[in-house]
Amino acid sequence: MEGPELLLEVKGLKTYFFLDEGTVKAVEGADFSLLRGGTLGIVGESGCGKTVTAYSITQLIESPGRIVEGQILFHRRLNGVEGSPATTEVVDLAKLRPGSRSICEIRGSEIAMVFQEPMTALSPVHTIGDQIMEVILLHRKVSKKEAREQTVEMLRHVGIPKSETRLDTYPFQLSGGMRQRAMIAMALMCRPSLLIADEPTTALDVTMQAQILELMKQLQREMGMAVILITHNLGVVAEVCEQVAVMYLGEVVEWADVEALFADPLHPYTQALLRSIPKLGQSKKGRLDPIKGMVPDPYNRPGGCPFHPRCAQMIAGRCDQERPPLVRRPDGRTVRCVLYADS
């Protein structure tokens, strides 16, 4: 078998929102790629464009937002029969019209999503069974009865006890953890090759978070799908992901393997981010080092490098003037910072 196969390549993605007050450049240059079966974490502060990046991949950006530039290359496997070499076709998702037939065929079937709030992300007036079955009835040729059986099976698989009866309950009758399990079951019904999880554990309590993450890891191993995990929790990233994309103000400032990133963060923002979280074994007197300043107003992005007003290693006359180039390091990781531009 030849080397690991690419699943998704995001190149120079830019997604803007055209509002009356001005243009919000929610994503201003996102570059990363993901291997089939791999796990990518996208981290960053609130409002840095993590969710918009994820929504761009499946064209879920609502008007007045729009992808203005870049490519999202999805390597779609065509009728991959077990054993025989599968042929793949490359689709540029960024070129598909939102709501078009081609993107609807991919959504839910090949790229599935899990959302943050399991309470509001499920319709309160439809049974969970109804909402889950819908996915498979839509994308696969199955009868209602088969769909129901498969749903029961999947619910059991994600750890919902008495799934035959739970099928007919409404979301408000389930606990938060159960609802998120149902959400995951819904996403996995068609065995997608990519699962995008947008802060799947943020709304859950801590014990539940661990369980859900463990469940996702287990299902990923079983089904061989790739996962993009969006989170602001670096601990979760270290736990689950193989690669990390760090975002700041709409830009992917650093993209690396998870060990490399934690051992040797390159971008000053990543370095600052890692200094700001507590570590086990750190002395009680040792103080956390918060990143100074605030995330700038999205309407007025700083010129040059967006991080320069808060950066400790800012080079006056350079960082506030020129946009740092995307630097690809020999080991494959990329960083967007002038400090590495000359090496």
């Binding site: 499946t58 709501g99 609807c104 991919i106 839910g108 079937s109 499920l122 819908e134 994308h139 819904m186």
Partner: peptide
């Protein structure tokens, strides 16, 4: 959004 993400028209 969930419903759209499922691929419903």
């Amino acid at each position: 959004i969930t419903a759209r993400a499922k691929g419903l028209p």
